[in-house]
Design a protein around this nucleic acid. Structure first.
Lengths: 191, 191
DNA sequence: CGTTGTGAATGTATTCACAGCG
DNA sequence: CGCTGTGAATACATTCACAACG
């Protein structure tokens, strides 16, 4: 989150930036910002602030974004295909190298420059393409199964769009569209 | 989250369910489940557990999901269109009543049964269609602007897919795809 | 029994407030 | 001066552990 703001600042020529400026952008306290940055060690200068570009690069390193991650998209339905051409992935150190889907119609096709393979080839292709992370956008019923196969094939992390808690022993990040909407509805009605 | 599990239990004929069963599904503690449910008042029976269906209905009411919310999708790009036909929205008390996009090619078209209108008509249509919530899937540069117009037109909550913190005074829920991926990359490399 | 609901204990996150520094 | 980095204080979340209950 801070990374975005720092990059924006750098682009606009603001070479230094203070914790309170960053805080204002996200409506949080300046103390929060400084605490969050504390784990990077001494990075700011009293009376001046932080060097936008340098701080961004430190954060990138801390988050392991100073390299390119090879990504597979599993499930080329609406959400899966929407993500294939997502420019922000490419811009931020992620490269979609392959997609998987069992739909006959997609066999052998290419979407947004990404080849779509059948799930039968999953293990093989994950190896040959050295896939490290997978975006799981398959129906809930098969999500757990596919997740296990992904991990067995060597995938080290999963971004899960299926509304099912996965039991695998690699890190999983969840994006649950309907839960987000439900949460919104709740907040709206308790204003 | 619990709602899903409770509905699944009900469908499978498990009329009662204990906190530890629910907890296991999400790899959390049973105490956590009971605390979370505490705000609903006395709902379980010692020695037995909770009535799956009845608890689900209480949660629905607490989250204001015991009604239908009228929804607009703003920005009919890849993500926007992917969401238009999303079956889970329809199933869970949300109804997409209209979409907006300025792309000439989409003028007057219908995607997945949803009419796409130009943004010029935003205020008018939001009123006439009684839209309460909006999904914001427009480019980051215009997100803040569009958000303000939405709120002025009467929208009471926004689900924001743009990677920009919105300043509006209605509840905002954020789905940030690249941040989720970045978070995943971080967790993977710190295993 | 088995399971809830909840005080008390613990753990974690956020904010306060200020010495110290350029 | 303005701003950082951080102890101390506060607020919040989670877990423990057990009386109460059918």
């Amino acid at each position: 989150m801070y990374l975005r703001e720092l990059d924006a600042a750098t682009r606009e020529g603001r070479t230094t930036i203070s914790s309170s400026t960053v805080a204002r952008a996200f409506s949080i306290t300046d103390a929060q910002v400084r605490r969050d940055l504390a784990c990077l060690g001494q990075t700011g200068r009293p009376g001046v602030g932080y060097q936008s570009a340098e701080l961004a690069s430190r954060i990138r390193k801390a988050l392991s974004l100073d390299r390119t991650w090879r990504l597979a998209i599993v499930g080329a339905g609406k959400i899966g295909t929407a993500l294939m051409g997502y420019p922000r992935f490419a811009g931020g150190g992620f490269r979609v190298v392959v997609a998987f889907d069992d739909n006959e119609k997609l066999r052998g096709t290419t979407v947004a420059g990404v080849a779509v393979k059948p799930l039968t080839d999953l293990a093989e292709v994950i190896h040959s393409e050295q896939v490290e992370l997978a975006v799981l956008a398959v129906p809930a019923e098969v999500a757990q199964d596919v997740a296990v196969r992904l991990v067995e094939a060597g995938v080290r992390g999963i971004l899960n769009f299926a509304p099912t808690p996965l039991k695998v022993d690699v890190p999983v990040e969840v994006i649950d569209l309907s839960r987000s909407l439900e949460q919104l509805a709740f907040h709206v009605s308790s204003v």
